[in-house]
């Protein structure tokens, strides 16, 4: 995160430092890893434009598609950074998105109110998130395993929710959904939430404390940081992200089945890492990682679809390329922080 903020205001640094040396230029060795995710996105975007132009892709539609496909992931992943920054690992994000979206859908069907749907999505997601947080905090459980358990519970809840309708799906009136499934709505939700997250993470105590916990939980505790309060705040924000993501999901796909949103959970993870977020959290956490990574993934997916969809193994090959690109970006991004010992 610092790497990025420093990069974007090189002029301001010289003057703001208290003792002249405080804001020296970074050496290329540090800079390249820090910028690897951004470079990745640039390279991918160039490839996307080249491939798209050569193959005669409808570019304006394609760009809209990019936003459509990445906005939910970006929102959820940005919120989730608050969890991952502390060194916690939440694997149940996809499942809670589904449950929140379903409750939102049911709420809309009961009230026919957009606001009720939004509120229902957010409340459900935040509540779900807080259940994980309190299980972890009160009973000292590792968050990862708690959320593994939550994953199955939420899956079961989704089935139960579908059953309440006595049918295969939870369905929201699609003409209503279409009315709000627009770029301005998506972008304003995304911008508002991202701005909130960047603000909280960069300019308030919460972000600092989270990085401290991620860096060394014992030190954080002995510096008077309340693990429980921080964890609950982090999960609440992540929940808010999931709620907003769920809200946009209902608008985008008003027909929800138990297998909806299935791949969101893992895609969120890949997006974050792709964007340069260290999975163990800590001081090197970057709040922009989700945005970079989410866009990179969407651009890559689009490009690969254009290139490979006609061959029968195309989807497999495109995933192989995605995997290789992912590993390459992560490799370059972490190249500055390697020790003699293998990382764990």
């Amino acid at each position: 995160m610092h790497d990025l903020t420093q990069r974007t205001r090189p002029g301001a640094n010289g003057t703001s430092g208290p003792n002249g040396t405080a804001a020296r230029r970074r050496s290329p060795r540090e800079l390249v890893p820090a910028l690897a995710p951004l470079l990745g996105l640039v390279v991918l975007t160039v490839a996307f434009v080249v491939v798209g132009t050569v193959s005669g892709v409808n570019m304006s539609y394609s760009v809209q598609t990019l936003i459509n496909q990445s906005v939910v992931i970006v929102i959820i992943a940005t919120g989730a950074i608050f969890i991952f920054a502390m060194g916690s690992f939440d694997i149940s994000l996809g499942a809670s998105t589904l449950v929140a979206a379903m409750v939102g859908g049911l709420a809309y069907n009961a009230t026919e109110s957009l606001v009720a749907m939004l509120v229902a999505c957010i409340l459900t997601a935040v509540a779900t998130s807080l259940v994980s947080a309190s299980l972890a905090a009160v009973f000292n459980l590792p968050v990862f395993v708690t959320t593994v358990a939550m994953l199955s519970v939420l899956g079961a809840v989704a089935v139960a929710l579908v059953q309440t309708t006595g049918g295969a799906q939870i369905k929201v009136d699609s003409s209503f959904a279409r009315q709000y499934d627009t770029l301005p709505v998506k972008l304003s939700v995304a911008v508002a939430f991202l701005a909130l997250c960047v603000f909280l993470f960069t300019y308030t105590r919460l972000g600092r404390v989270e990085k401290l916990i991620g860096g060394n939980p014992v030190t954080a505790r002995l510096t008077g940081v309340s693990m429980k309060k921080t964890a609950i705040a982090a999960f609440a924000i992540a929940g808010l992200g999931v709620g907003l993501g769920a809200f946009l999901t209902v608008l985008r796909t008003p027909t929800m089945t138990t297998s909806s949103a299935a791949d969101i959970g893992m895609n969120v993870l890949v997006a974050m890492v792709f964007g340069g977020m260290p999975i163990s959290g800590g001081p090197r956490t970057r709040i922009y990682a989700a945005l970079l990574g989410g866009l990179s993934m969407a651009v890559l997916n689009q490009t690969m679809t254009t290139l490979l969809a006609t061959s029968s193994a195309g989807n497999g090959i495109s995933q192989v390329v995605r995997a290789l690109f992912f590993l390459a970006v992560v490799w370059v991004a972490t190249s500055g922080h390697r020790s003699k010992l293998l990382p764990r």
Binding site: N58, S62, T65, R252, M256, S259, A261, D263, T306
Partner: peptide, 20 residues
Amino acid sequence: EEVGDADAEKRAMESFIANN
């Protein structure tokens, strides 16, 4: 690719449309 839910369908449709 194998589309498992409404969102995946929509994504595939979008790709199709973008790819003419």
